[in-house]
Amino acid sequence: MPRPLARYAALTGYIELGRTLGIDSVRVLRDAGLDPAALNLQDRWIPAAAVARVLELSAAESGREDFALKLAERRRLSTLGPLSVSIREEPDARSALKSLIRYQHMYNEALRIRMSERDGLTAVKVSIELGEPAAVQQSCELAAAVVHQLLRGILGDTWKPVSVGFTHARPADDSTYRQMFAAPLVFDHDFTGIITYTTDLDKPNRLSDPLLRSYAQQFLDTLTAPEDPTTTTRVRELVELLLPTGRCSIEQVARSLGVDRRTVHRHLAKSGQTFSSVLDETRAELASRMASGSRYTFTEVAEMLSFSSPSSFSRWFHQQFGVSPREWRRQTSADGTHTEAARDAVT
């Protein structure tokens, strides 16, 4: 079964936080197989395991067990992207949480949020399921902080949980935990999550505008269906992610998806594709985009697209588009042409 993906938005504010804590954020991202230059592409899908690894490495290198909580302090509801539109307009806290749970796959496929009610209390439990052995303490705490911030935003600053639980031992310095949650903390707990009074969840959402509720739901429904991304889509996104690292191979893509290469070939064949065709299409799309602007030199473009030399990139580009990369850039900057040519080359 393919390994779960997450959006780059999960790392919003990461570079800035790393800088303040004295760690080399760019190196950590690269060590986890991620492209630091793509961090601002918040809607791009990446392996959820890579996100978890970035958080764990950062906590270890900074010596801050509260790293994920410090990252959460830099987030806003809007970090959830289109999902924030629906949540903001739900009538009460319960509906907002259910919306978050229903559409959590839009944000992070590894995230699991569950609600259970008993004796007037509601437990909101969070977990991360990567499909492989890996440390997830930081990822779970980031998710718990997101839930807490959501409820605080809906119910107001006077709301406080009954308690907040963590599956790990109490850290030597728990001041960030106490400051963020302002509630009794239970460490070595059987789950990571928040317990609140059930009646709190029935309180109205102070952010909601009833006139916009129907529109917000319709808007969200146009952006997503409750289905997993196709294997072809995942392969294409992983190819785009891995090309700049020089490790873009069918074996590496298969490992990222948690399957063997034959399974990847079989799924691609169902949609009339091969790994080579997906690689060529993605490379052509990236090449046309990079050659159109002046941000990268052609040598850099060749390296980012895993060509052995600038000359081999130039020959390949001419075969794809009928002009050299230099001529493409000159003409594109002059009159904005080639949009159709680029589209034809990758279809």
Rank of each mutant, 00 (worst) to 15 (best):
S324W: 01
E65L: 13
F191W: 08
N40Y: 09
L212G: 02
F181P: 03
V162G: 00
V26Q: 12
D335P: 00
T158G: 10
S256L: 13
K203S: 11
L151D: 02
Y8C: 09
E300S: 14
Y8I: 10
G131I: 00
D260F: 01
F321D: 00
S311I: 11
S84A: 15
A135Y: 07
A144H: 00
K125W: 07
A96D: 04
R76S: 14
P82M: 06
E117R: 15
G13C: 04
G258K: 05
M1D: 09
R3D: 09
V235E: 01
Y107F: 13
R266P: 03
S277P: 05
A284V: 06
D200G: 06
P47S: 06
T158V: 12
Q137G: 07
R178T: 14
R236E: 13
D260H: 10
L151Q: 01
V186R: 15
H267I: 04
D157T: 13
R114E: 14
E129R: 15
S288Y: 05
P184R: 07
Q42R: 15
N205D: 11
K70S: 09
E65W: 04
D202T: 14
L34V: 02
A37Y: 10
L5Y: 04
D190E: 12
P36G: 07
P91M: 08
P47Q: 08
D174I: 07
L220H: 01
F313E: 02
S309N: 08
R289A: 14
F317D: 00
L220W: 02
L279K: 03
F67E: 00
P244H: 05
I113M: 06
V259R: 06
K270I: 13
V124G: 03
V126N: 02
T20V: 12
A269T: 08
A144W: 00
F317M: 06
A342S: 11
S62T: 11
P226W: 09
V239S: 00
S311P: 03
L121S: 08
T192L: 07
G13I: 01
L220Q: 01
R315F: 12
S99I: 01
E117A: 12
A145N: 05
F187C: 06
S314E: 15
L257Y: 04
R170F: 12
Y14N: 01
L41V: 12
R178S: 13
T299N: 14
T297C: 11
R94L: 14
T198D: 09
Q273W: 05
E285K: 10
A287E: 02
I15S: 05
I113A: 04
D43S: 15
Y8H: 12
E300L: 06
D35E: 11
E56N: 11
H105K: 11
R75G: 08
A37W: 08
T337N: 12
L220M: 10
K98C: 08
R30T: 13
A216V: 06
A342K: 04
A50H: 05
H148P: 04
P184L: 06
G18H: 00
A110W: 02
T245H: 08
V28G: 00
D228P: 09
C140G: 10
